[in-house]
Write a protein that binds this DNA or RNA. Structure first.
Lengths: 345, 345
DNA sequence: AATTTTTACGCAAACGTTTGAGTTAGCTTG
DNA sequence: CAAGCTAACTCAAACGTTTGCGTAAAAATT
């Protein structure tokens, strides 16, 4: 702890100045002469003075750190998002404190509590699939905590949000499958309560309806744990494969579900795309080298994180309370690869 | 910030007690009667009192947070490691602050500086490939900062370390290639200065020597940026493919190098394993569904993170200075898949 | 030269907590 | 019953900063 334990007091003593003079000199106050400022800053520089952040935090009432809640850090999409957050926060002198909800409501509440306890200046959160009630967040917001939602947002709380064009992404992916000759397209998604799920589902439905294809409810499977629970996903796939007519393509709605589905199809010796085509939301850098290479809806994850953090910091640094909130929607990108190779010749 | 802004002072006022009585009651001091303790704790409970962590930190001289430096969070191996760290730290009431060095020495120094500035109680670090000089870390350790190395450790600093059996992992992988009929095995690794690189290289060499095969220096390629820089890696592969006799197998020494090599081989239409077999250190969960499925040396990443954190916290919480340091070596596991399919029939 | 203004600095309180050193009142002891 | 002891508190300093206010000297204005 007490490394280069030089404090403002030490500087004051050495330079025969008062503590407040030193403090003001370092903060470049107009009250202090240029000469003294120079003296102090040079001395501080030379002795590698660093203000004690805890004393500053205590005094100023903020901690220069922001809290992050994601479902799991061990997930290409989220780790890329966090990468963007860390980058932006760091460049503005903030630290990030990362916590994982593992899609559990209980853990989410607990983590947020812990973060508040650590006196974060703001919160970046993608709510857990399990979470249906966001009262705990609303209360915090009303008490003045700046919050920015990303990815999985809540409609019930009014604040800045950063999402991607989920509807468009799913629509485009579904249209691509249809154009490639697939007729019976299934959709595996996560919890019904999630904003992301609903938007992607809507894109899927829109594409079907627009193409004059009836939506078959049996083709839509919900996985409450977002693919974290393999059994749940396996059951969904098994059910799909027994549905008549059997689906000839699957659209998966999240990174984890996509990769897990791929793994399970392999395990079951179901060939992609001959037996069933696969298109999924995924940010894996390995899409190209998968077997088969994976047609994926890619999200600008880094940019999501960067933008969300930028917006959060703008709330934090704003003098007046914010009442107008922005809803940033970033585009997705469809990468067409072999897992959805055309059936037509 | 000032959420449930109830302080010890508020409690004291309400209960007509002094601030110190309340503080001592909450800390269960023998100086306070059971009756008063009960009164105070119940009041605190009811009003959801939480001690201000910054005031506590300032007073007690520690921050209950530990710093982490990894090359990149967006990397399966490291995100799994961090997952383990976060889990252990959190369970002991500590926060983690994560920073990324992106394999740059300069960034590493800067990040460590920032972490110290944030008054971390300890440091978990995997040093950057670029880093040759660890003087900056040694100085901090001498000043009393508890440090635990993981993955990329330094021999020049004596402290707890958590690594895997790099030599054994590389040895086993090389032996497997030899047993599968591959004769000309190349090795792509990262910086020469890295402990990991050296150990894996040694395992590779040992296996060859033990099998009576001469080590061909031209088969060993170093990538200073650990695969972050694709050009560098592409050049290494190009050179290998022009070496006579051309290698019939490659052992890659890190997660990033492995996946990038796979991507590049695809791009160049070099078939795996027909043209060249591939075995790599990697923690990707997608190894099974790659094309071809990837023979990989897997590291217990979560456990590395968990163990390193446990050891760091034991130093932090130790009354007396530690002089005896442990060097934990965890086993790797070789998963044999198609990218190294036997040449023999 | 007397006044006001400006410059440059010091004092002290405050942020919320912890803790060693008092300070009572009630109790025990010889 | 005086002297000491204990239990149960309170006081006040301290952690390292920041900041409003006070003030002396220098400079500018009458």
């Amino acid at each position: 702890m007490n490394f280069d334990a030089i404090t403002i007091r030490d500087i004051a003593r050495e330079l025969h100045l008062s503590v407040s003079t030193v403090s003001k000199a370092l903060r470049d106050s107009y009250e202090i002469s240029e000469k003294t400022k120079k003296l102090v800053t040079e001395f501080a520089q030379k002795h590698n003075y660093r203000p004690n952040p805890m004393a500053q935090s205590l005094k100023k009432g903020h901690s220069k750190s922001i809290g992050i809640v994601v479902s799991s850090i061990d997930n290409q999409f989220f780790s890329q998002v966090i990468n963007g957050m860390e980058s932006e926060a760091y460049s503005q002198g903030y630290n990030v404190i990362i916590t994982q909800s593992h899609e559990s409501y209980e853990l989410e509440v607990q983590n947020v509590g812990h973060l508040i306890h650590r006196a974060i200046d703001g919160l970046l959160i993608s709510i857990a699939t399990e979470t249906a009630d966001v009262e705990h967040l609303r209360r915090l917001q009303q008490q003045g905590l700046p919050i920015v939602f990303f990815d999985r947002v809540s409609n019930e709380i009014d604040t800045h949000k950063v999402i991607v064009d989920n509807l468009g992404g799913a629509y485009q992916a579904t249209m691509h499958l249809l154009a490639s000759g697939y007729k019976n397209i299934a959709h595996i998604t996560s919890s019904v309560t999630s904003s992301v799920t609903n938007q992607r589902l809507a894109g899927y439905v829109d594409a079907l309806v627009e193409s004059g294809i009836e939506v078959n409810e049996q083709y839509i499977k919900y996985c409450l744990h977002g693919g974290l629970n393999l059994d749940e996903l396996e059951q969904a796939i098994d059910e799909l494969m027994q549905t008549e007519p059997r689906p000839d393509a699957i659209l998966t709605a999240s990174d984890r579900i996509t990769t897990s589905t791929m793994t399970l199809l392999h395990k079951k010796n179901i060939r992609i795309p001959q037996d069933v085509a696969l298109v999924g939301f995924s940010n894996t850098v390995l899409a190209d080298v998968l077997n088969p290479s994976l047609t994926s809806v890619h999200q600008p994850a880094f940019e999501i994180g960067r933008k969300a953090t930028e917006m959060l910091l703008s709330i934090i640094n704003s003098k007046r309370p914010i009442t107008e909130f922005e809803n940033v929607v970033l585009p997705t990108e469809l990468f067409i690869r072999s897992s959805s190779a055309s059936k037509l010749k």
